[in-house]
Nucleic acid binder design. Structure first.
Lengths: 345, 345
DNA sequence: TCAAGCTATTCAAACGTTTGCACTTTTTTC
DNA sequence: GAAAAAAGTGCAAACGTTTGAATAGCTTGA
């Protein structure tokens, strides 16, 4: 049978003291005699006293809990972000309550509501693919709720955004392919409503331009879902329909890239000899497949950690919301592997 | 500026009614006139009233929150479990607070403490590799805290365990290898203190025995960490030291199996012609690597969902703790892919 | 001797809900 | 037309904690 946790009142009764004295004694407040403090602490220990965080939250209107809203948990990149969030939150004494939206805006909204009900101290959000209207976030910001966006960030006033340098990552990846002698580079792009998709596409385009390679619209194809199957299908179609066969694929994510790789292999093309491939995100499997997949590393853990640091600093008023007029951008790193190495030294 | 959320008192003041009436009106309690109910609800709507879950928790000694303690978030299998947990919890109106132990028993214990402080309604636990003494869990069970273990389950009285049929999965995998003509099958086993490791090893051993193949102790090697690198190293050593070369590897997990595959390839062995390989867990990358990796599918999502159902049923007293005298076991499924297909039909 | 000044402690209200009970007021019943 | 029943609402306590203000019991000093 669950024994009701000992409370301050129980200790008070035991020692014939008032609740306030117990509270202060436990907190080492001045004005309590050393003797009393000692006794109180002993009894607390003996009774296995554990402060009731709920009561504390009610009193202080602070829950020491942050809410994380994420599209999917079963996603390598996001899981690394969660890990970073959890790590920092734990070390600073906060709880993390987690919900996934499964890319549905309705779940996003309802999660916000339950979290508000739960008096969360702040939000960390990466919004869903369905989200095109940011009204529900703007309202929160206006009302002064601490909220930090990561990875998928909105373009709205006063939003605090932590992101990866998608533009540079894509630029590097594309430049690398060019440097390896690939010229006809296809970009499998991401969903149109995500800023990260645009940034990556822009990096790709700029790299081509800066190397004097014409940008062909038919070489930019949307791979919105981001599964290997989708990438494979799209690539297959391209290979059988394009008059001028591409010699490289730059995927907006690793899944699409791996799909492209499979399609190329099936089409009898050798990777990297005939076709070069680079992905984005550097999922675990990149080094396990054959040929190993070059990819742009996104620092997910660091992103989660940094975003949480910022959120907690805001919550604790160590920094001011207005200090952020531009996003916090983390560096990517191109991991060159065999799928794009054509020039051997 | 954050506007203090409207409370029941605010509505009461607005309508010149008492807090109790508001509370009852909002809950459609009998004994409140339809007219009042209507007015109250309108005003609540207008003031954007949102019940304070913290106050409710304090009053009811129920937080509608469950605590999940998991070894790692960045782990395909566990992330699918979390997803299942989150899904069921959300649909039944519960929050999920998540902590990862990073395989450290100290974090496990301290997580339990903060969760207890937070008046969590119940626990879901998969313990760390370091955990060998289950005292801290036994105590919780004795005190009547609802707690459900999943995947890594303890062998202690009254524990409610949800697990996968590791024995059968391993048995199937090994039998499959035998049916494909492999005879000298190495098992890369898991950490010794996890029951799942024993079960998988037992399935492997029994399959050999039942097919009249002698079990050789030197063919069972511990791959405790479970990374591709470790699997690769171990396999390399085996290939260069064993006088009688093995012709198959059954990995306790996919990472070890992939390591074995890489080592075999480097050693000039062809997969599956010379060596057959089967993993365990069916991680996403299994179908993406070349050759694709056969693996035992573990229903992670279903496990998380089932475990949560049970936990919530216990919390809500829909079922009794004593109804569980044996673990809930979920079926595995062998996914045969190219890494172990030697007999072509 | 007594006001002043400490020290150690207690009181009481507050955070936002819920809920058993009591209290009005209205309606029904005979 | 008076008593009984019903309907609608309010009071107050409780959940566990914190905290400003109040109080009690000392010691000190002139």
């Amino acid at each position: 049978m669950k024994i009701g946790q000992a409370t301050i009142k129980d200790i008070a009764r035991e020692l014939n003291l008032s609740a306030s004295t117990i509270s202060r004694a436990l907190k080492d407040y001045p004005g309590i005699s050393e003797e009393t403090k000692k006794k109180v602490k002993e009894v607390a220990e003996k009774m296995n006293y554990r402060p009731n965080a709920i009561a504390l939250s009610l009193r202080k209107s602070r829950s020491f809990t942050i809410g994380v809203i994420i599209p999917e948990v079963v996603h390598f990149f996001f899981s690394t972000v969660i890990s970073g969030i959890e790590e920092v939150a734990f070390s600073r004494g906060y709880n993390v309550i987690l919900t996934q939206t499964n890319e549905k805006i309705e779940r996003e909204k309802s999660s916000i509501n339950t979290m508000l009900s739960n008096q969360i101290d702040g939000f960390m959000v990466s919004f869903s693919k369905e989200t095109e209207d940011f009204e529900h976030f703007s309202k929160l910001i206006e009302q002064g709720y601490p909220i930090v966006f990561f990875d998928r960030v909105p373009d709205i006033p006063h939003a605090i955004n932590v992101m990866v340098d998608d533009y540079q990552g894509a630029y590097d990846a594309t430049s690398h392919l060019i440097s390896q002698g690939y010229q006809k580079i296809v970009h499998l792009s991401g969903p149109k409503n995500l800023k990260i998709s645009h940034e990556r596409a822009r990096g790709y385009t700029d790299a081509l331009k800066n190397h004097g390679i014409p940008v062909r619209p038919e070489y930019i194809v949307e791979s919105a879902v981001g599964t290997p199957d989708e990438g494979k299908e799209i690539t297959k179609k391209l290979l059988s329909s394009l008059p001028d066969l591409p010699d490289a694929f730059f995927g907006n994510n690793d899944m699409a890239a791996v799909g492209a790789m499979l399609a190329c292999k099936e089409h009898g093309l050798r990777v990297p000899e005939d076709v070069g491939i680079v992905g984005f995100s550097n999922w675990q499997f990149c080094s396990m497949i054959d040929p190993s997949l070059s990819s742009v590393f996104q620092p997910g853990f660091a992103m989660g950690a940094k975003a949480t640091e910022v959120l907690l600093d805001i919550i604790e008023k160590k920094i001011d919301v207005d200090d952020f007029n531009s996003p916090i951008v983390l560096e990517t790193e191109l991991m060159v592997r065999n799928s794009s190495k054509r020039i051997f030294k």
